[in-house]
């Protein structure tokens, strides 16, 4: 998995970062897209974006990552924020139990607005502060398993697992998309000639439409 050039890509995957204020969403993003970390990063206002193009096998995938304020007050953009997202990192701070306690609420918000097939990873950030840990790894892992989420612990500060987290999510999306594209081609072949074709596509095809270029 390496960097491709900015303009040369086969897929664009929209991935959203969600979770409480102050858990480190913006630093995860800047670590992944620019390999930067800021100790005194400012609060994210509204929505901010960053992209990075990575190679998955022979395909260049541009990850378009949306970062938002943790405080859920920017309703004007909530639906636009989730619209078309194919992946999500639900981030909590493993040194603050409160940020983990509300993960279920965030999950509900996500499924209320995004499509059910979205790839979601639960991310326990700030693993460098293990002496201040308030959320046991196993507890979070169990929660993720029970809810069908991927799971990793990361540190945006020392880079642990940041690449791996985004990479895993992108690969999972890629696998889904590849499968759906094949299904989609088959489905189209079958429904060819129907006047209603494409008007109300199933979730799989719709996904493929959003992503493929």
């Amino acid at each position: 998995m390496g960097n491709g050039t900015e303009e040369d890509y086969n897929f664009v995957f929209k991935v959203v970062l969600i979770g409480e204020s102050g858990v480190g969403k913006t630093n995860l993003l800047s670590r992944f897209t620019r390999n930067e970390f800021s100790h005194d990063s400012r609060t994210t206002i509204g929505v901010e974006f960053s992209t990075r193009t990575v190679m998955l096998g022979t395909a260049a995938v541009k990850a378009q990552i949306w970062d938002t304020a943790g405080l859920e007050r920017y309703r004007a953009i909530t639906s636009a924020y989730y619209r078309g997202a194919v992946g999500a990192l639900l981030v909590f701070d493993l040194t603050k139990h409160q940020t983990y306690a509300v993960v279920e609420r965030w999950l509900k918000e996500l499924y209320d607005h995004a499509e059910a097939t979205i790839v979601v990873m639960l991310v326990g950030n700030k693993s460098d502060l293990s002496q201040a840990r308030e959320v046991p790894t196993e507890e979070a892992r169990m929660f993720a398993e029970n809810n069908g989420l991927l799971f990793l612990e990361t540190s945006a500060l020392d880079s642990t697992n940041v690449e791996l987290a985004f990479e895993t999510v992108l690969k999972e999306i890629f696998a889904k998309v590849s499968k759906q594209r094949q299904n989609s081609i088959r489905t189209n072949a079958i429904t060819l000639g129907s006047a209603q074709a494409g008007q109300e596509p199933g979730p799989g095809e719709k996904r493929a439409c959003c992503i493929s270029l």
């Binding site: 400012r42 206002i45 509204g46 929505v47 901010e48 974006f49 920017y74 953009i77 636009a80």
Partner: peptide, 16 residues
């Protein structure tokens, strides 16, 4: 064209 990248500009009147 939703211009959401301007959110912060509008909300904080370009202060940031």
């Amino acid at each position: 064209d939703d211009l959401f990248f301007c959110y912060r500009w509008l909300l904080l009147e370009l202060k940031r």
